[in-house]
Design a protein around this nucleic acid. Structure first.
Length: 472
RNA sequence: GCCGCCAUCGUCUAGGGGACUAGGACGCCGCCCUCUCACGGCGGUAACACGGGUUCGAAUCCCGUUGGCGGUACCA
């Protein structure tokens, strides 16, 4: 099997493109074949170096590698020109100055469902001659046969007046030259396929690609946003880079994206990349368009985070912080052992890498006292509870999680209050918020000095207000 | 407009004429667990777009309608 992923560098790699890349990659690895990366940059306006680099970066992040390329379509211009001339000489194509408006007029005269046929001229764009009779049938592994009657097809423009070739021509020749056996791409290309097949047929008539089989086509269902509309920035993370920046794991993204338009068939939802490679087949690809909905990705991502070992997760968190928050990265990087312990106590509470710092930043001195939290838990009773906590913790000989737990639990029992009446004031004093990792492990991680220091700070800060309170 | 693709819970999907009282996963709701938030456990909610056929029998096959999407560029 020889496959290709052929993005056009018009910007960041979108989810749809990423899925196309993944399916091609999965197929190549499943079959032991090769994956060719080709950059379709025949539109010089949009094809910038930066855009190409964005795509390569996205593929690298997704950990999808390729065996050949990247081949730049633009660099194959001499070859394209050569084939184009041959097609022109043999009469399979002709020059025509007809514009889009001319085509419109032609259709008004001959009927809307009648394909445009031009006259041969000296100058102008190059059009391929489509036979008047017959039809081109696209054999698609996913969709079955689709028949395109030649009478409905316009003679497609395959090269501009300046001789530079257009997409449908370049694709057909490049696939032929690269010996591509399977073309797997988005469904938006289904209507292009007969044009490419016709180019292929004309090239064959010239004796090109001797013995080569027509490629097997597979058109994947399109991906839409949660509202069923075309995927765009409106829908949150729509590109691979945005997914990475939102704190998703590449393996979770691969797993989730594989499930968009494909299923293992036995209700399996969580599939490692190895399993994906083992089980992926085109025959099981769905025909229905799918919507990209982040909620399930979040769930999967959390699951991958929870099952990862702590040191690996720590490395991922560090890399993520380095990418998104230089200050946090520096604080977390200063003490790797501390960071790993912070990761351990946060692991089951975060669904994305982005959630680590807001939850565990307090460990590194990052504290934002939320007024609402203080108001709710550091009132008269909270301060009173906090004094009790301080006294109890100050006496602790062994400042470990077990000792801390039994001390605080003892306090709860002794005061006959709900646990949260003790724990929440303490949590707010230590972290500034009402949400944090487990309180015992948080206290243990902070250590005695820092814990007491923060409690004292909270007492000093809130006590004056408490003093004015009336006895209740 | 024309050409084409598609149509099962809110979402991703299983389903290939009788095993469908339509299965799973996410989400949502409830209960349990519980120091917050989560995790976990248990239970629940929820779909065959519509109309005609074919057949003893249709979510499954055919036709039509409707809806969504794609193509219709000297874009890719």
């Amino acid at each position: 099997m020889r496959l290709r992923f052929a993005p056009s560098p018009t910007g960041a790699l979108h989810i749809g493109g990423a899925r196309t890349a993944l399916f091609n990659w999965l197929l190549a690895r499943h079959s032991g074949g090769q994956l060719v990366l080709r950059i379709e940059d025949t539109d010089k306006e949009r094809s910038t170096k930066e855009n190409v680099e964005q795509i390569l970066e996205a593929l690298r992040w997704l950990e999808l590698d390729w065996d050949e390329g990247p081949i730049f379509q633009s660099e194959r211009a001499p070859r394209h020109e050569q084939v184009l001339e041959a097609l022109l000489d043999a009469g399979h194509a002709y020059r025509s100055s007809a514009t889009a408006d001319d085509v419109k007029v032609y259709k008004q005269r001959h009927g809307a469902d009648c394909g445009f046929r031009g006259e041969q001229e000296k100058e102008g764009a190059v059009r391929l001659r489509v036979p008047d009779e017959g039809a081109t049938v696209v054999h698609d592994v996913i969709r079955g046969d689709t028949r395109f009657e030649h009478v409905h097809l316009d003679d497609p423009v395959i090269a501009r007046a300046d001789g530079s070739v257009l997409y449908n021509f370049a694709v057909a020749i490049d696939d032929l030259d690269a010996g591509i056996t399977h073309v797997v791409r988005g469904e938006d290309h289904l209507s292009n396929t007969p044009k490419q097949l016709l180019v292929l047929g004309a090239a064959r008539a010239l004796g090109l690609g001797e013995g080569a089989q027509e490629p097997v086509y597979a058109h994947l269902p399109l991906l839409h946003g949660p509202d069923g509309k075309k995927l765009s920035k409106r829908h949150g993370a729509a590109s691979v880079q945005e997914l990475r920046d939102a704190g998703y794991l590449a393996e979770a993204v691969r797993n989730y994206i594989a499930l968009l338009g494909w299923g293992a068939g036995d209700d399996a939802t969580v599939l490692s990349t190895e399993e994906l490679i083992k089980r992926f087949t085109l025959e099981r690809v769905s025909r229905n368009p799918a919507r990209f909905d982040e909620t399930k990705l979040r769930w999967l991502n959390g699951l991958y985070i929870r099952t990862m070992n702590a040191s690996e997760l720590t490395a991922r968190v560090q890399a993520y912080l380095a990418l998104t928050d230089a200050r946090a990265a520096q604080l977390a990087g200063a003490d790797p052992a501390l960071t790993q312990r912070a990761v351990e106590i946060s692991q089951e509470k975060i669904a994305t890498l982005a959630e680590f710092w807001p939850l565990a930043g307090f460990v590194f001195g990052e504290r934002l006292l939320k007024p609402a939290a203080a108001e709710r838990w550091l009132g008269v009773e909270g301060i009173e509870a906090l004094r009790g906590v301080r006294a109890a913790l100050a006496e602790l000989a062994e400042f470990d999680q077990v000792a801390i737990a039994s001390t605080l639990e003892g306090l709860v029992e002794q005061r006959a209050v709900k646990p949260r009446e003790i724990y929440q004031p303490l949590r707010v004093a230590l972290t500034g918020t009402t949400i944090s990792p487990g309180i015992f492990e948080s206290v243990a991680l902070l250590g005695p000095e820092e814990t007491l220091r923060r409690i004292d700070a909270a007492l000093n800060h809130c006590a004056p207000a408490a003093d004015t309170g009336v006895e209740s």
